[in-house]
Amino acid sequence: MPKITIIAGARPNFMKIAPIIKAIEKAKIAGENIDFRLVHTGQHYDKKMSGSFFDQLGIPEPHSNLEAGGGSQAEQTANIMVRFEKELLENPADVVLVVGDVTSTMACSITAKKLNTDVVHVEAGIRSGDLSMPEEINRMVTDSITDHFFTTSEIANENLRKAGIDEDRVHFVGNTMIDTLLANLEKFIDPDIRINGGKLKGKEYFVLTLHRPANVDEQEKLKDMMQAIIDGTGNFPVIFPVHPRTAKILQNLGIEHERLHYVEPLSYLEFNFIVRNAKAVITDSGGITEETTVMGVPCLTLRDNTERPETIIMGTNELVGTNPKRLKPYLDKLMAGEWKQGGHIPLWDGKTSERIINTLLNLY
């Protein structure tokens, strides 16, 4: 009977583990001898991570919250490791399952291996090649000590082959983020954002998200990028879900325009409603590029690299870069109605979590 400890530390992690928990529950109903323990490391405090968030995605309350958030990268890593070691000693598992690439992913993997517990990594093998990103360090360290690798794409498989990983430890299963997306398509919630007294009209606005240091830390560069976005989006409103503190910084920098609308952070179901109905999304997030690809929404990524190249090769995403001057030709192409259509990415079909659990049942 595999006893699985599932780790989640930040909001995107919970979107990735929600369908895995559902697949375990389904297997138990079918008579399989499997059980799980959900551990929230508390890496990120997010007011949107309230009971309603768990209810929306059908996630049970975590069995344990390590409350290890705050501090520098090193302090956070250390806090998670110390607290997770105690948790795992008190509640031994056959397998520790980690997802994604946050600090919790790496810290809990190291702790588990030092306690001689197997680690499985969901979303293994993805690489940006950018060692200035903490996430890239987390991915590389986690994959260096993982026992079994669950991958989202053939590109990730190839990255692991190049690293010398045996084929029988690599399991190409698809993308659990897409399981969550497809399970909730009909549950999206209209946040009823009002622009000049009227509702947003489908395909007649842009969605913007920015959070990476390369885009937001240099004030002049940020101003130039925001101006390029305003200049290139015609007469369409630009909806920017942003933390109120960040919105204030942007306004203090004089980054305001009648078509630029700062709104508070949205829940998962609300955010994906506005994404699904947008003309396009401009972002520096990795996960959003996956969701836009599946929903067929044009996506412009303001980064110089990506760990999700399949969204460019097969999807609706284009890698614009962080130089504001590079944005115009992409927006010109979009406004001219010449954006690529994108296509189907193998195994991004909503059944990834079932494949993961079936594989774990065979392995353990």
Rank of each mutant, 00 (worst) to 15 (best):
D130P: 02
F240Q: 04
G100P: 03
K203G: 10
N33C: 12
K248Y: 09
C299I: 07
A228H: 11
P134R: 00
T117Q: 01
K203L: 07
F206V: 10
F172S: 05
R212W: 11
I80R: 11
F172K: 09
L222R: 14
V99H: 11
I6N: 02
F236S: 13
G51H: 13
E61W: 11
I29S: 14
E258D: 14
T5I: 02
T146A: 04
I126Q: 04
S104R: 02
L208Q: 13
V238I: 15
G129H: 03
K199H: 12
T246P: 01
V122N: 00
G125S: 02
I6S: 06
L131F: 14
E123F: 05
Q251W: 00
V173W: 12
N235M: 02
I195L: 11
A8Y: 10
A156M: 02
V119H: 13
T316K: 09
S109C: 08
E318A: 13
M133A: 04
P346G: 05
L200I: 08
E291G: 08
T293G: 04
N116H: 04
E167L: 02
C299K: 01
V242D: 07
S64L: 15
I229S: 09
E291I: 08
V297P: 09
K340N: 11
L269N: 09
R139H: 04
I4A: 00
G343V: 12
E186S: 11
A336V: 05
T311M: 10
T246F: 08
L360F: 07
I155D: 10
P213T: 05
E154P: 00
A280N: 09
K279W: 06
E67K: 15
G321C: 12
A30K: 15
K162T: 06
T146P: 09
E32S: 15
E90A: 15
N277G: 09
T292S: 13
T152N: 07
L115S: 01
S128R: 01
K28I: 14
T209D: 01
L327Y: 15
V98S: 05
M1Q: 14
T246I: 08
F84I: 00
L331K: 10
V99S: 06
A27F: 10
L319Q: 09
G58R: 06
M335C: 07
R326D: 15
E204D: 13
I312Y: 09
V297I: 14
N91R: 11
L361T: 02
I229D: 04
I229C: 08
I357F: 10
D168H: 04
E220F: 08
G164C: 06
R355E: 00
N138F: 07
R276S: 13
S353W: 13
T151L: 02
L347M: 07
P329R: 11
E270I: 01
G350M: 10
